[in-house]
Computed example of a mutant assay.
Amino acid sequence: MSEQPTIGWIGLGDQGGPIARAIAEGGYPLHVWSRSGRFAALEGVPYTPHATPAELGAVSDIVGLCLSEDKDNTEVLTGGGLLDALNPGTVLINFGTGLPAAAVELTRLAAARDVRVVDAPVSGGHAGAVEKQLTTIVGGDPEVVEKLRPVLETFSATIAYMGGAGAGQVGKLINNAMLMANQKNISDLLDLAVAEHVDIDALVDVLRNGTASSRALQSLGSAITTENAEHLSTLQLIDMDIFREAFDGHGPTVGVITERAISGAEDLPKLAALITR
């Protein structure tokens, strides 16, 4: 890998667009393929568009995928010809949230072409991506991860190495479940406060500035609003489907955690309305 590797990028959504932009602003040559053919997220920064994933892969030292689901990765890698087009020594980074087992399988398939794979899901949402303050949760070969660090630092406040292939996904799924369980805690306790006719605005201010504070609470009314809460709730429920599948077989506690986190995701629009009313 050269000192200034060429970065290929696929996925220009809420997080992927700002991440790709940050990489270009960091001075890295950026090559992009867009399924929609739209590149508005990169307006004002230098990049090279490509007609196919395979065309992008052939000129990239590192390829980042920031897609919604594992099946999207498979579609691009096999159906789009990306994997076959990658040169030996290329590093493939999956920034999406998915199954740890899928990350392990992708690592195995890519190894046959001497391509290294790192799973690096991110936490911090759209706002964190725009502000270049994401937490990037990484699994894979530690030597490869260390070489990637300067690229990851262009958009990350924290880079947390979890372990081998799939460990980044484990860390992200646990992070997601804890966030949503905390949302349920907030929802239940604020219901009690409403029933007792407490000033909710004053109480939330106390909770945000006291020992009860959490990222779940801090995000309400800022990153999470009445306008986007329904959409974020839907995404959280998808994440919990992945969590349930990933940790199936780990005992009854997983079911308890899953159901509480799902309730927290479902309560998110109600919480946003209560705090931003």
Rank of each mutant, 00 (worst) to 15 (best):
E105M: 12
G80V: 05
P269W: 14
P121D: 10
A85I: 05
G16I: 05
R260E: 12
Q4G: 07
L268N: 02
A20I: 05
A193R: 09
G57S: 11
Q133S: 15
M162Q: 13
M240C: 05
D201M: 07
A41Y: 04
E153W: 10
R277D: 07
N228G: 10
G96W: 05
S219R: 13
R260V: 14
L192G: 13
Q133L: 08
I159N: 04
G140K: 11
I224S: 05
G171I: 03
Q183A: 08
I93K: 05
S123I: 04
T234N: 08
W33A: 03
G140R: 14
E146C: 13
V130D: 02
C66P: 02
A273F: 14
L134T: 02
E131A: 15
L56R: 10
L152R: 01
A202V: 08
P5V: 08
N228F: 12
A216W: 01
G8A: 10
G44P: 01
L77D: 02
D14P: 00
A272F: 01
A102R: 13
Q183R: 13
V91G: 00
P142L: 10
Q169R: 07
T135K: 13
L92F: 02
P29S: 08
P88S: 12
A24V: 07
A51N: 13
L217D: 03
D114S: 12
L190R: 02
G124M: 04
A51R: 15
V206G: 07
L30C: 08
D239H: 08
E131M: 13
H50S: 04
L152F: 15
H31Y: 09
T90K: 04
V104S: 02
T276H: 15
T97N: 15
C66R: 04
L173N: 01
E3I: 06
S263A: 15
G57R: 02
I238M: 06
P150S: 10
L192E: 06
L134A: 04
L12T: 07
N209L: 06
L220R: 00
P252W: 15
A112H: 14
L189I: 07
I7C: 03
K71I: 08
T276C: 13
P5T: 10
V45H: 00
L173V: 10
G16D: 03
A85H: 02
V115A: 06
N73V: 09
N73L: 08
T74C: 08
L65F: 11
L86N: 00
G17H: 03
L203V: 07
P150I: 09
L173R: 02
P142K: 14
E146T: 15
V115D: 01
H126D: 06
Q133G: 12
Q4D: 03
I186L: 12
D239C: 05
Y28A: 05
T78N: 08
K172P: 00
E75M: 10
P269T: 13
A110H: 00
S2A: 07
T158Y: 14
T225Y: 11
T258E: 12
T107K: 12
R208N: 11
M240P: 00
L203A: 07
E259Q: 15
D141I: 11
F247D: 05
M240L: 14
G89M: 11
G11Q: 03
G8K: 09
R215T: 09
Q218P: 01
P150Q: 09
Y28I: 04
D70L: 10
S214V: 09
A160K: 14
S214T: 08
Q183T: 06
A229G: 09
G125Q: 05
A223Y: 09
Q4S: 10
Y28W: 12
D114C: 09
E25F: 09
E55M: 06
